[in-house]
């Protein structure tokens, strides 16, 4: 090392060699921090500005959460989960049937939209750049993302409620699945495309068929991204009210009776319960609506956490 040092030194420019008479000398004061320099002041101002705006963005979220806890929290009890909605003048009660109903309707919607959505994404992600069918499907999915949710309800009303002879959990599930589908398709396609090309090449080089490539490499690697999309879609669907008004309607009773569930009858859901009770003139019902909103938010939160846990497990 000493030899190298000895060789290098003569070649160094004078300013690095510490010759203070040379014009290239470093002015050490320039390096010092000073709050008075315009550059520093501007920088500080911007940091404050950005921080304030970021906090402002959080205000709606936290004020909603606070409001829910404050107005709905005190009503929380086991009865909420086990009892039926109170009638106008009644005290107490709960909305166990609406929780179960939301759960059932969203499950039906997921069972329809997840397989179709993920398989569509598989197709899209493997299609060539110029493929007409793929770009048509992708375009349709993008249009569907902005689809007014009430139209999904009207569609399911015409297609299922009228033909099946009544409001039902199935019709509600179908309406919600239409809303979930585009989000799942687009995010899953993106997630599958994000799998590094070299992993794809590795699998093809091992002699994987297209199907094996998809099942054994692309989908497992893309699972975290796909789960995120599914959770986003689920969260949106669980809170939709309009499409359910046309399809599942509401019910003051449990879904089915004596242990077996009947999906072909009007079904309660949290979203519609909130809609009905929030505007009701009875105190017990309005406070019930707050509690229901709190439960709905917590359900969405929990499903998100489960999704994240699941996707993290996949990576390690």
């Amino acid at each position: 090392m000493a030899v190298i040092g000895g060789q290098l030194k003569p070649d160094l420019p004078a300013k690095f060699a510490g010759d203070s008479n040379m014009p290239g000398q470093i002015n050490v004061e320039e390096l010092e921090k000073s709050l008075l320099k315009p550059r520093t002041i501007f920088n500080q101002l911007l940091i404050v500005f950005v921080t304030v705006l970021t906090l402002t963005a959080l205000v709606p979220l936290f004020s909603v959460l606070w409001m829910l806890l404050w107005k709905g929290g005190h009503n929380l009890s086991l009865a909420v989960f086990t009892q039926l909605p109170p009638s106008p003048m009644e005290e107490g009660g709960g909305f166990g049937n609406a929780i179960l109903g939301t759960f059932v309707i969203v499950s039906i919607a997921s069972m329809i939209s997840i397989p179709i959505g993920v398989l569509t994404a598989c197709f899209l992600s493997q299609s060539e750049t110029g493929s007409g069918l793929a770009s048509t499907v992708r375009f349709a999915a993008k249009v569907l993302t902005g689809f007014p949710s009430i139209l999904a309800g009207v569609f399911a009303y015409g297609a299922l409620v009228l033909t099946m002879g009544g409001y039902s959990a199935i019709a509600g599930g179908v309406a919600l699945s239409i809303l979930m589908l585009p989000t799942i398709v687009l995010t899953s396609e993106e997630a599958i495309r994000m799998v590094p090309k070299k992993m794809k090449e590795a699998a093809i080089g091992m002699g994987a068929t297209d199907t094996q490539l998809m099942w054994m490499v692309l989908l497992p690697t893309a699972i975290p991204g796909i789960m995120t999309g599914v959770m986003l879609a689920l969260a949106r669907a669980a809170g939709e009210t309009a499409p359910l008004l046309f399809t599942a309607l509401f019910s003051n009773y449990w879904l089915g009776s004596s242990g077996h569930i009947d999906l072909r009858q009007p079904t309660a859901s949290l979203a519609v319960l909130i809609y009905n009770f929030a505007g009701a003139p009875f105190d017990n019902q309005t406070s019930m609506a707050w509690t229901a909103a709190l439960i709905l938010v917590v359900m969405v939160l929990i499903s998100n956490l489960i999704g994240q846990l699941f996707s993290r497990r996949q990576i390690n």
């Binding site: 070299k198 992993m199 090449e201 590795a202 080089g205 091992m206 002699g207 490499v217 497992p220 990576i315």
Partner: peptide, 17 residues
Amino acid sequence: AVRRHIGMVFQQPNPFA
């Protein structure tokens, strides 16, 4: 079938996740 008989190691290490 060909690729199952003729294996390949790439320039960049590319293990699966």
